[in-house]
Design a protein around this nucleic acid. Sequence first.
RNA 1: GCCCCCAUCGUCUAGUGGCCUAGGAUAUCGCGUUCUCAGCGCGAAGACCGGGGUUCGAGUCCCCGUGGGGGUACCA
Length: 470
Amino acid sequence: MSELIRTRFAPSPTGRLHLGNVRIAVFNWLFTRHHGGAFVLRIEDTDVERNVPGAEEALMGDLRWLGLEWDEGPDVGGVHGPYRQSERGHLYQEALAALLDQGEAYRCFCAEGEGSEETRRYPGTCRSLDREEAAARAEKGEMHVVRLRTPEAGTIEIRDEVRGDITFPASDIDDFVLRRADRRPTYNFAVVVDDVTMAISHVIRGGGHLSNTPKQALLFDAIGAPRPRFVHLPNVLAPDGGKLSKRHGAQGVEALRDEGMLPEAIVNYLSLLGWSHPEEKEVLTRDELVAAVDLDRVRASEMAYDPDKLRWVAAQHLARLPLRAVVDGVRPFVDRSRFPLSDPALGPAMEALRSRLSAFGEVNDHLGFVFPQDGAAWDELRAALRRDPEGQEVLREAHASLEALEGWDREGVRTAFKEAGRRTGARGPGLFHPLRKAITAAESGPDLGWICVALGREEVLHRLEAAMVA
RNA sequence: GCCCCCAUCGUCUAGUGGCCUAGGAUAUCGCGUUCUCAGCGCGAAGACCGGGGUUCGAGUCCCCGUGGGGGUACCA
């Protein structure tokens, strides 16, 4: 594609972004970056009653956090601004005047909802009203809307980049409203004027808009502007196959962010919904996605959101992070009130349990391996250990070896355990089980060597002593 | 009601008429590695919605049905 690629993401500020919305932004962004185009953020706030205060900032915050930077938008400006529909009234006005002038649109004085029950279409009552007369009535303040003069017969052909050519019967599309009685533009009208004036080349949006497309195509034609390429991404369904919505299966970006999930992982997972890598690779970095994502491998069929796979992708990304990054990522999430973990201990602790994380916020679910909580259960375990002569022997010898240890690292600790094993004749579970129980109060868990390093010599010795017969 | 879109393992998908006795991923289960769990490695089970065509040959093309989704607003 040699033309200038310009795309847009146009959310309404009615709430936080959820995975369904964000996926649209992800494709727009990926596609645009792939082609070196410009990505525009436009706020569709025409419906004043539905606007939620602060939603615009929140939504921009979510997008930025995901790394989906826009080149033009309400906060960064741009030559095609303003970027809020509420501030673009004059553009709609101008476009409307031109349409009225050319006879492409006409004033309609009918009462709201007038139309036959059968077809549910507006019958075109005011279509043939005298233009001068209509203008005069409007001048006098008579309530009216403005409608587009649409073809009565024939077909409307549109091209969708993922589905190909689609034909709609023109008779199915009535003379729809462009401007309401209160003079606000309708959605379909505002969108087209915006896309034209912002020189959008590719309209990439949810499949739900496919049915709006013939109307919008007609509007582009009426305005005399070339139609953009239409790209309708298949809809995302809830995990159970039903409709995805905030209250049904849709995760909010905010929630995932609060959980400490890697934004790159979210972008990666979302990219896999409806698109596939030519070599079927699934774990991809942002750069790899930008390099690979294009329209030719986008599917047309809808699909379900799968939280399990999201988790898996996230875990894969996390696993590829250097330890340093895991430690930094996890640090703000550690519940210090429950886990007396010193900062230097974070490294070994993460070595021990990073493989079970898919998001940083999950640390607290696993730190219990290092800092057991249940005192009563631990006491029982210790008591049982004290009644076990072989276990006692292991504990005693391990304690001695550990105490004599020069430094305090994983290899040293493991060597000390093995020495204790050699001296007592205990091997395998016979050796590690009593140690693990004494140190972590659990029968299973992460690598004991790393846990010991994280706990420090003093604490480990202390725990061993607590489980030994005095 | 009418219009439009969609249809491969539970889920995400590969597949563009013969390479498909349908491949990969996830989830599930088993084995191995490991003190154990997680991870990792290996393996098992698991799908072309139904019916008609077209063709020497159909998951792939056409039609009908069924199911799901969207639209039919002075909502977006």
